[in-house]
């Protein structure tokens, strides 16, 4: 048992009464689960629970590669990119850095799961929070893969992709500016990262990537679980009755985007399938989804702190809806 020895010696070194270490709990738990497997599987007999479990696993499996790319990028930013790089690349004036960072979101192909750790890594490297937040919001919404998938999903409405790009970028930049005016950087409670500095750059990279993956991954599970439960509990029929009222339709689509927590690379296909709804209300769905959803709120409060998330998510929701409605009214 070479694995448990260090655990015990580490516990001993802190001069505390012996209590079961995390590794022991994990081992016992896994044994218990193996013994009880038959009973656990029996619980999942109902088709509704089966469907919920499938949706839960699929959200996690779909998001994991993007999360891995995100934490590898954030690890690389922490380990290999000197802090001075960002001061050179981004304009000195924060008011100008916000739109630049927002447009930079157009080049990172990834979904929202990737951009949370990347934005966290940027703030930890001294990038102005307003600029990092503009990037956080724009990257998953306007990157090439997302825009192309929107074009493909709406073959008869070519303006949809353009409207999505404009409305998302506008919302991201407005939020960045709002943060400069009204926000307070002390609301962001980033975990200290000095324990993630290793012996070498390569070691720092590993420590940061490991930490960010376990952290963001845990919150991804929270969001995926919530989305899966709501997916099988909320009857879709309710939606069709509200589709006829233009105001209700916008509210419903914004709510649906928050609840479903679909990856931004897939949401265009879902929006395209909701044909009862007006194009503008579906644009609201596409603009809100990558910026505010259950999975993201959980991941953001994990990365930036709860104080931040309770202010940031509602504000973003309002700005995103307004931006989408205005652009939709203009272009669609």
């Amino acid at each position: 048992m070479t694995l448990t020895d260090p655990a015990k010696s580490a516990a001993g070194s802190t001069q505390r009464r012996w209590r079961p270490g995390a590794l022991e709990v994990l081992t016992v738990g896994m044994l218990a689960v193996l013994v009880g497997q038959r009973w656990i599987v029996g619980l999942f007999d109902s088709p509704r629970l089966q469907a919920g479990a499938t949706i839960f696993v699929s959200i996690i499996v779909q998001a994991l590669p993007f999360l891995v790319v995100g934490v590898v990028l954030s690890g690389a930013i922490a380990a290999f990119v000197p802090a001075t790089f960002w001061q050179r690349v981004l304009p000195k004036k924060p008011g100008l850095a916000v739109p630049v960072a927002g447009c930079a979101g157009a080049v990172l192909p990834g979904c929202e799961c990737a951009s949370v750790p990347v934005a966290g890594g940027l703030i930890a490297r001294g990038v102005a929070p307003a600029a990092a937040l503009a990037f956080l919001l724009s990257a998953p919404a306007i990157n090439p893969i997302v825009i192309i998938s929107t074009v493909v999903a709406f073959p008869n409405d070519p303006m949809m992709a353009a409207a999505r790009f404009l409305a998302s970028l506008a919302a991201a930049v407005v939020i960045g500016w709002l943060w400069l005016r009204l926000g307070n950087d002390s609301w962001i409670r980033m975990p200290r990262r000095d324990h993630l500095v290793g012996n070498t750059d390569w070691h720092t990279f590993r420590l940061t990537a490991t930490h960010d993956f376990l952290h963001a991954g845990g919150y991804l599970v929270v969001g995926g679980l919530t989305a899966a439960v709501l997916n099988v509990v909320v009857p879709r029929g309710i939606l069709q009755t509200v589709a006829d009222n233009p105001v209700l339709a916008v509210v419903a689509m914004a709510g649906l985007a928050v609840v479903l927590s679909i990856c931004s690379e897939a949401d265009a296909f879902v929006a395209a399938s909701l044909t009862e709804f007006s194009l503008t209300s579906r644009l609201v769905f596409l603009v809100v989804g990558p910026m505010v959803d259950l999975k993201l709120i959980a991941m953001q409060s994990g990365t930036f702190g709860r104080v931040f998330a309770t202010r940031f998510a509602p504000t973003t929701l309002v700005v995103a809806v307004l931006s989408a409605v205005l652009v939709g009214w203009w272009l669609l």
Binding site: T54, I55, V57, S58, I59, V61, Q62, A153, A227, A228, N231, L260, S261, I262, C263, E265, A266, D267, A268, F269, V270, S273
Partner: peptide, 8 residues
């Protein structure tokens, strides 16, 4: 389209 959460 992408994952089983979005099937139609």
């Amino acid at each position: 389209a992408c994952c089983a959460a979005d099937t139609v």
